[in-house]
């Protein structure tokens, strides 16, 4: 007789889904992980993250907590680093660096420079502390998305974020290879999947989603959306981009 053993949905919560998405591209046997953040608390890693060393580093204008290695352990170690200075870690220290909205938040703070320049400078510093074969993975607002325009900082007129093409270009210019950029679907509150911004891949995802909701749409609404999907425009409309790139070996 089979015993009832209900499956525990490992991706049941929003946090678990987000963590799972960040872990998808990670290489096996990761030993050291760094999350760079501007807010008070990290939003992705915690002390259960599967790594030997987990560092949560806050980028700030006034450093009150410099980096002091506390030894290996599963506990999250925290520190602060200056917005624009080299990261306070030795070269080739980390296997994975997580930038959860870090690039657009940093671009908002360093508003005198273009978001692309800010992202490129940050990614070069990240590349320095990554081991060869290591990975940078992150998400940010999509510059071309109307919804991102609504979420832009009040003080600035422009969306301080990267776009579908500039995201991949910046990763390549910063020295990362095998860069991939995605739309995060349906959004940060319920991250259920990634859709590549490659035109064909994007058409597949959004055509399927459109057909699934077809019954609730009028003919005009359906046809308009069909044109948007056919032209692969959804990738420019979705408001969050997810990206990764590997430091070449």
């Amino acid at each position: 007789m089979s015993i009832e053993t209900p499956a525990v949905g490992v991706y049941a919560t929003c946090e678990a889904q987000l963590r799972a998405l960040y872990q998808i591209p990670t290489p096996p046997g990761q030993a050291a992980v760094l999350e760079l953040r501007l807010g008070d608390a990290g939003r992705v890693v915690d002390d259960t993250w599967p790594a030997d060393l987990v560092v949560s580093c806050r980028l700030t204008d006034t450093i009150t907590q410099p980096w002091k290695p506390a030894g290996l352990g599963r506990r999250v170690q925290t520190c602060e680093a200056a917005y624009d200075a080299p990261l306070p870690f030795a070269a080739d220290t980390f296997d994975l660096v997580i930038l959860h909205h870090t690039l657009d938040e940093l671009a908002s703070v360093l508003s005198q420079r273009s978001s692309q320049q800010v992202a490129e400078d940050c990614l070069r510093r990240v590349a320095h502390v990554l081991r060869p074969g290591g990975l940078v993975v992150g998400c940010g607002l999509n510059r071309s998305s109307p919804r991102a325009w609504c979420e832009r900082p009040r003080a600035t007129r422009r969306v301080r974020a990267l776009g579908v093409y500039s995201c991949r270009n910046v990763l390549h210019r910063s020295g990362f290879a095998e860069a991939e950029v995605f739309n995060l679907l349906p959004g940060l509150d319920n991250p259920r999947g990634l859709s590549s911004v490659d035109a064909q891949a994007s058409r597949i995802t959004f055509r399927r989603a459109l057909e699934a909701s077809r019954a609730s749409l009028g003919t005009a609404g359906y046809l308009a959306r069909r044109i948007v999907v056919g032209l692969s425009l959804n990738r420019f409309i979705e408001n969050v981009l997810f990206y990764w790139g590997y430091k070449p070996c």
């Binding site: 991706y11 990634l194 859709s195 064909q200 891949a201």
Partner: peptide, 22 residues
């Protein structure tokens, strides 16, 4: 490779993987 990734509420990841040639 090109990837589209979906999470299920349970324990599987589903990916559509394209090889770039269709």
């Amino acid at each position: 490779l090109i990837h589209n990734v979906r999470l299920t509420t349970e324990s599987t990841l589903r990916l559509d993987v394209g090889d770039g040639t269709g």
